[in-house]
Write a protein that binds this DNA or RNA. Structure first.
Length: 208
DNA sequence: CTTTAGATCGTCT
DNA sequence: GACGATCTAAAGG
């Protein structure tokens, strides 16, 4: 069932922007609280560390919170935003290069019931289309910071699978969301999106 | 459909 | 002490 797992070494790649784009179409899987759920990634943002004013690690900022970003690629960084929302990031690049990719949206393809329970009943279409919703649907919390992709810890595990192929022409690149403070870096087109409808087509075609 | 306000707390200044 | 890599409900058009 879990063939085509992407090894965490995949996230050692240097180009975080290219990597964020490549993540589209891949599948995130979690087993947390004994519940397995997964979804196809359809929106990401790249955060280019030291040189990127939108990044928590801008200017080589090293604090207790950002320390995880300086580990090798493939680690999980979960940021608590507005005191309420957990945001799921994957650290990339080699040790001491604090790059990260924010997963902003997934199209659920397994464990819909569990996701609905975790989120509270809502429009199925909007169950994981936003960074806070993604983490909540997957059962991810700030305490999961430090997990390495594919490595089980206390019966909890998160990994990435190849998922589905995506047509490059469907990918839209836009400025990142919610980073007005980032001055000249706020316009960089480092957010990548595929319409959820396109993912649905692929998922259905695959099942038939 | 769009706009707006309120929730809520760890982190850094 | 201020402020977020956000979401929702409610109110208005």
């Amino acid at each position: 069932m879990s063939q085509n797992v992407v090894p965490h070494s995949y996230f050692l790649k240097e180009n975080v922007v290219a990597l964020a784009k490549e993540l589209l179409g891949k599948r995130v899987v979690t087993v947390i609280d004994g519940e397995r759920v997964s979804g196809i990634i359809n929106e990401t943002e790249a955060y280019a560390g030291v040189i990127d004013k939108a990044s928590h690690a801008y200017g080589n900022r090293r604090t207790k919170r950002t320390e995880i970003m300086y580990k090798q690629g493939g680690h999980i960084y979960v940021y608590l935003c507005y005191g309420i929302h957990s945001l799921l990031n994957i650290v990339t690049n080699r040790r001491d290069i604090p790059h990260a990719i924010l997963i902003r949206s997934i199209v659920p393809d397994f464990g819909l019931n569990t996701m609905c329970d975790r989120r509270g009943i809502l429009n199925l279409k909007n169950i994981a289309n936003g960074p806070g919703k993604v983490a909540q649907a997957l059962g991810i919390l700030p305490q999961h910071t430090g997990l390495l992709l594919g490595e089980k810890k206390e019966h909890e595990i998160i990994w990435i699978e190849e998922g589905i192929s995506v047509d490059d022409k469907l990918i839209e690149a836009t400025p990142r969301i919610g980073i007005d403070y980032a001055e000249e870096d706020k316009h960089r087109p480092w957010r990548f999106v595929i319409p959820a409808s396109e993912i649905h087509k692929k998922i259905e075609a695959h099942e038939n």
